[in-house]
């Protein structure tokens, strides 16, 4: 499943990335395989989304969330 499919309040564990270039940036920001993520909220217009990962809040666009495969 992709992170972009979750609704606010739902959680998942990062398994893999489908995009190498994006994965470097995401991992530097603490989104590592094995890490638990929770979707906290959507922006008022539905995109981007705010997630909680590694003890802080991160926001990213839905298109970027779709490269994160979760369980």
């Amino acid at each position: 499943m992709k992170l972009s499919h979750l609704n606010p309040g739902e959680t998942g564990t990062i398994v893999a990335f489908t995009d190498l270039e994006m994965s470097v940036k995401l991992m530097e920001m603490g989104c590592l395989p094995g890490e638990l993520v929770e979707v906290e909220r959507f922006a008022p217009l539905g995109d981007p989304i705010a997630i909680r990962v590694a003890g802080y809040q991160l926001c990213l666009r839905k298109s970027e969330a779709s490269v994160i495969i979760i369980q």
Partner: peptide, 9 residues
């Protein structure tokens, strides 16, 4: 273009 950003407390 991408938009990956920390939301500070």
């Amino acid at each position: 273009s991408y938009f990956i950003m920390e939301l500070p407390v």
